[in-house]
Computed example of a mutant assay.
Amino acid sequence: MKASLAVLFALTLAPPLSIADEPQSKIVLSEDGKDFRLAGTETAFYVWGVNYDHDGDGKLIEDYWHDDWAMIEEDFSEIKSLGANVVRVHLQLPKFMKTASEPNEENLQKLADLVKLAEAEQLYLNLTGLGCYHKQDVPVWYDEMKEADRWQVQANFWKAVAKKCKDSPAVFCYDLMNEPVLGGGTNADQWLVGEPLGGKYFVQRITTDAAGRDNKEIAAAWVKTLTDAIREVDPQTLITVGVIPWAHVWPNAKPLFYSEEVSGPLDFASVHFYPERDGVEKAIVALKVYDIGKPLVIEEFFPLKCSLEEAEQFLAKARPITDGVTSFYWGTTQEEYTEAGTMQGAISAKWLERFRQGAPEASK
């Protein structure tokens, strides 16, 4: 049974696509806007990627890319060997903005170096921005800002990043923010939400004061502010925003950022899924809520709460309505996980092997 699941897992992914010996092409939307294509062709592109969100010690990329660039080069080579074609990198706003209006040119140059590395490895980058994952790094001047000023800083961030990256075919997309939410909840006056996970705040509010507006009005204004800033300097790179799929939490929930009123400037939908044990069908039902006629990417996926077999079942069932999957790579190889001899290491090693087996031919 396990062997047949692995075969099914591999067969239900993207059709073969051979790009290894050709110049890297920009990824664009198909003419009908429903799928990804290599620019200037009708060749389909299926995202098979990893989140490269921190290293094995929990450090963020800006914490080590000045002093340990060789490790990043090694990690990108290992990611390529896994059969991945997209690397999702999480950029921290405090590392890219010295002041409200002055970008950090030193880190922008390292980002340019990262783009060149992706080009060399024939990998694509999902640049996820505005991170404030390490609360201690968030400057007081930014944390104390009101909504309008904060959004302007965020627009300045994206304009600086897009200006630096716009000419590279290796930049697949700009993800406006990881898991934005609106106001309300506990400590509603705080921009960072909930308790940290592994010392990191992955969820962030875009407002702390609705001021009489409904959620769709706020979300639409925020998306337009940031996409307008990007489009001033980069008219072509795809834009998305990675969201918590609330329909997976509450079955009757409707999309906010991917509602008709909000999603206009976004080129494709990105959702984060961690199916629960015995919950594959529930997750698929929730996933279909975000199938809105645009490409749909599962931007975060890992068998965190389910078995490896259930993870394969979910991806096989998701394949007909999705245009990509992005798992995780934390700088530890399959062999290193195995040598560690721990239960968690064994699970991670098995998942990396299955991830490698399922990769589209184009990425190998």
Results as ranks from 00 to 15, higher is better:
Met1Ala: 11
Lys2Thr: 12
Lys2Glu: 12
Ala3Asp: 14
Ala6Thr: 12
Leu11Cys: 12
Pro15Thr: 09
Ser25Arg: 15
Gly33Tyr: 06
Phe36Tyr: 10
Phe36Trp: 07
Ala39Val: 03
Gly40Cys: 06
Thr41Phe: 11
Glu42Pro: 00
Trp48Asn: 03
Asn51Phe: 05
Gly56Val: 03
Asp57Met: 06
Leu60Arg: 12
Trp65Gln: 10
Asp67Pro: 00
Trp69Met: 08
Met71Trp: 09
Met71Ala: 10
Glu73Ile: 00
Glu74Met: 02
Asp75Val: 02
Asp75Ile: 01
Ser77Ala: 14
Ser81Asp: 13
Ser81Val: 03
Gly83Met: 07
Ala84Asp: 02
Asn85Glu: 07
Gln92Arg: 09
Lys95Ile: 01
Asn104Ala: 13
Asn107Lys: 06
Gln109Asn: 12
Lys110Leu: 11
Leu111Cys: 04
Leu111Thr: 03
Ala112Cys: 01
Leu114Ile: 08
Val115Thr: 15
Lys116Asp: 15
Leu117Phe: 12
Leu117Gln: 05
Glu119Ser: 12
Glu119His: 09
Glu121Gln: 15
Tyr124Arg: 04
Leu127His: 03
Leu127Phe: 06
Gly131Val: 03
Gly131Thr: 04
His134Thr: 06
His134Arg: 14
Asp137Met: 07
Val138Leu: 15
Val140Thr: 15
Trp141Asn: 02
Asp143Trp: 10
Asp143Met: 06
Glu144Leu: 10
Ala148Ser: 13
Trp151Gln: 13
Phe157Ile: 01
Lys159Gln: 15
Ala160Phe: 11
Pro169Val: 07
Val171Gly: 07
Asn178Pro: 02
Asn178Thr: 05
Pro180Asn: 08
Val193Cys: 04
Val193Tyr: 14
Gly194Cys: 04
Pro196His: 04
Leu197Glu: 10
Tyr201Ile: 00
Tyr201Cys: 01
Ala211Phe: 01
Glu217Gln: 15
Ala219Gln: 08
Ala219Met: 04
Lys224Cys: 00
Asp228Leu: 02
Asp228Phe: 07
Arg231Glu: 07
Asp234Pro: 02
Pro235Ser: 13
Pro235Val: 05
Pro235Gln: 14
Ile239Thr: 07
Trp250Pro: 01
Pro251Ile: 00
Asn252Asp: 15
Asn252Lys: 14
Ala253Phe: 12
Glu260Thr: 15
Glu260Val: 13
Glu260Met: 03
Pro265Lys: 01
His272Glu: 12
Val280Asn: 07
Glu281Val: 01
Ile284Ala: 03
Leu287Ile: 07
Leu287Asp: 06
Asp291Val: 04
Ile292Met: 10
Ile292Ala: 05
Phe302Tyr: 15
Pro303His: 09
Ala311Ser: 14
Gln313Pro: 01
Leu315Gly: 03
Ala316Glu: 09
Ala318Arg: 08
Pro320Met: 04
Asp323Tyr: 04
Val325Tyr: 14
Thr326Met: 15
Ser327Pro: 02
Trp330Gly: 05
Trp330Cys: 01
Thr332His: 00
Thr333Cys: 03
Gln334Ser: 11
Glu335His: 05
Glu335Gln: 14
Tyr337Gly: 01
Thr338His: 00
Thr338Glu: 13
Gly341Trp: 05
Met343Thr: 14
Met343Cys: 00
Gln344Trp: 11
Ser348Asn: 14
Lys350Met: 11
Trp351Glu: 05
Glu353Pro: 01
Gln357Tyr: 12
Ala359Cys: 08
Ser363Pro: 00
Ser363Arg: 05
